[in-house]
Amino acid sequence: MTMTLTNTGLIDLSDTTVREANATLQAATEGAFTLANPGGKHALACGLQHPVSVTIKGHTGYYAGGMNKLAEITIEGNAGTGLAENIMSGVVRVTGDASQSAGATGHGGLVVIEGNASARCGISMKGVDIVVGGNVGHMSAFMAQAGNLVVLGDAGPDLGDSIYEAQIFVRGSVDRLGTDCIEKEMRPEHIALVAQLMDRAGLYADPAEFRRYGSARQLYHFKIDNAGAY
């Protein structure tokens, strides 16, 4: 049986190690925490497994919020590579920009990037919902298996390359679609889905302005005549 550990407090990373901070956050089963002076440190607030609230006051390094379960994490700044990688549930929010591979392989939950996301946003995503207020870089949603990537801005080259069953919604331009990724009809249920995801993310635009992209499913079985596509 898990003991309920409640805490509300300030963890100052200028005089606390990442290990000590993470151990505190991972042990807490409820409560609200603030991490001050993150200084771009890596692996902050990763592996959380209870519905705690964490606010990080500044920029984070790699893998902030990695493998998150249930926790709500807000980074008031920019995030490095692998933000919320393999997230299972909960919410990880960045008020600034995120580096490459944000939300990589995420199985569930919500990742919100209020600014821009770099390359490979949502790579191999497996059920996570990702909402990006700005633009996403090249190869975003590469081999994306499930979940939704909503981009209020523009998408870089090779969007959705080798995508499986994930859905991509882009409001702005798409530089170039990746292999086996095609534009699909934006039906009313998709408009409703985008509206609902933006509402959860706290980011707003006209959902009717989005275009939908997904798999053509032409590469699901290997055929020699498709060799040129690889």
């Binding site: 990442v18 290990r19 692996a43 990763c46 592996g47 790699y62 893998y63 392989t105 790579i123």
Partner: peptide, 18 residues
């Protein structure tokens, strides 16, 4: 999907340990 090269891997391993 989320690291490239040994410098990144060092950080990845630190995350797994955390």
């Amino acid at each position: 999907p989320d690291w490239t090269g040994p410098d990144d891997l060092e950080i990845k391993i630190a995350e797994l340990r955390e």
